[in-house]
Simulated scan of single mutants.
Amino acid sequence: MNVRKLLSGGLVVFLFIQLLLAPVSVADAAAPPSLSAEGAALIDVASGRILYSKNGSKKMRIASLTKTMTAIVAIENGKLDDVVTVPPEAVGVEGSSIYLKRSEKLTLEELLYGLMLRSGNDAAVAIATHIGGSVQGFTYLMNEKAALIGMEHTNFTNPHGLDDSNQHYSTPEDMAKLSAYALRNPVFRQIVSTKVKDISWEGEEWDRRLINKNKMLHLYNGADGVKTGYTKLAKRCLAASATRDGRQLATITLNASDDWNDSAKLLDYGFAQFPVKQLVGAGQDIRPEMPLPMATGAHLVTQNAFSYPLQTAEEAAIKQRVVMGQSTITADMDGQLVGFLQLYLKEKMIGQVPLLVRVDSPTSSQPLTGAYAFWKQFWDIVAGGLWSA
């Protein structure tokens, strides 16, 4: 009886250990989180890959997330030390404010901090008139930049995001693209990651102290941006970002009653389920699908490495294709760009790496490759036959 109990107990323990060691299925591991947001998107900043989308192409109100575009257009078209004189139209703008005074002078950099940390609608108008000459002129620049970034379902009518018309809208995926684009700019990245900033307050005995409204900077490990937003019609909106081990992700949640938790869930999901994989190394030898005539010692190498965020199950779906701009590789082409290695995830191209010619120093033992090897071997046979005859 004791032996039987012992064996039964051992079997239970063995099965339990096997269960623990059994690999979790990819489908279960990759299950996206449940969100309160009506629309949401998650993007890998470096690659621009959308990792998750909920109603990603739905046109929605975006409230003060608009100011991400306002900031990046201003940074790219102005100078941080520009002195801006506050125009009358920027005074008393409804909603969030940094309490600008008419004809007060601040630098563009100070206004950008007021725009992104305290969501100053008055700062947005002051920036717009300084950079674009008018609010209308600035919104033209905003829409022009949106088109260049690839925001295909977006239209801006103002620099702050207040509910002034049904023609001011974007989508979760478009806003994710915007966040990723803006976060690649070091000035923007510095501003949105700042928790507290003091800026001048002309005519007052003290400076303005700006405390960032983005609670994610305190709530989430590695959080470093981006922008909060709210209007009565748009409801709670949030653009968030975080960096871990040198890798940055960004999220968008629109009309989200639980936006802080939604963003944290999405970031956790992205970091855990989409690790960055190096698909090609720098200086890696590449052989075209169709052999090319190549000089002795010549071969093709990648100019740089290429990495991409992938789920485990996606790695087997990566394909490579060599596209050449030259039909023959000669010894004097050492170091020249002659083609590209294109990488595909299923049928979608995810990137391409330049291919260079590398010609090694010839040695007596170095093998010939491609057509040169074929024709030399052919001639040796022919010449050998003639000589022996």
Rank of each mutant, 00 (worst) to 15 (best):
V3R: 11
V93F: 15
Q248D: 03
N221Q: 14
M333Q: 06
A389N: 00
T70D: 04
H130L: 08
M116L: 15
D245H: 11
R49I: 12
Y269M: 08
G9N: 11
Q320M: 09
M69R: 01
H168C: 08
S388C: 08
A223N: 06
G325L: 08
A256C: 04
V322R: 11
I381T: 11
L355Y: 06
Q326C: 07
A272F: 06
M142Q: 05
R244L: 07
L117V: 08
G132Q: 01
S241W: 00
K67T: 02
W201R: 15
R247Y: 15
L178E: 00
P362T: 07
L162M: 13
R189P: 00
L341Y: 03
L11Y: 11
V382R: 07
P88M: 08
G370P: 02
V91C: 07
T363R: 12
T369G: 05
P291N: 06
G150K: 00
P87L: 13
L35S: 00
W379G: 12
I131M: 09
T363V: 14
N143L: 09
V24R: 15
A298E: 02
V226Q: 00
E173L: 09
A298D: 03
R189G: 03
M1E: 05
L15Y: 04
Q342P: 01
G335Q: 13
I191M: 10
G384S: 04
G297S: 10
A223H: 04
A63C: 08
D82Q: 05
Q320W: 00
L249S: 02
S165G: 13
D380S: 14
G132V: 13
S53Y: 10
M290W: 12
E314K: 14
F306S: 02
A223L: 02
A74C: 14
V3P: 00
V357M: 06
G222S: 08
N77R: 12
V187Q: 10
T139C: 05
F340L: 04
L115C: 05
D245G: 10
F188P: 00
G114S: 12
L238E: 00
F271C: 05
N2E: 13
Y52G: 01
I131L: 09
N212S: 13
L345S: 03
A180Q: 07
I72M: 15
G335M: 13
E204W: 11
P88W: 11
P291C: 03
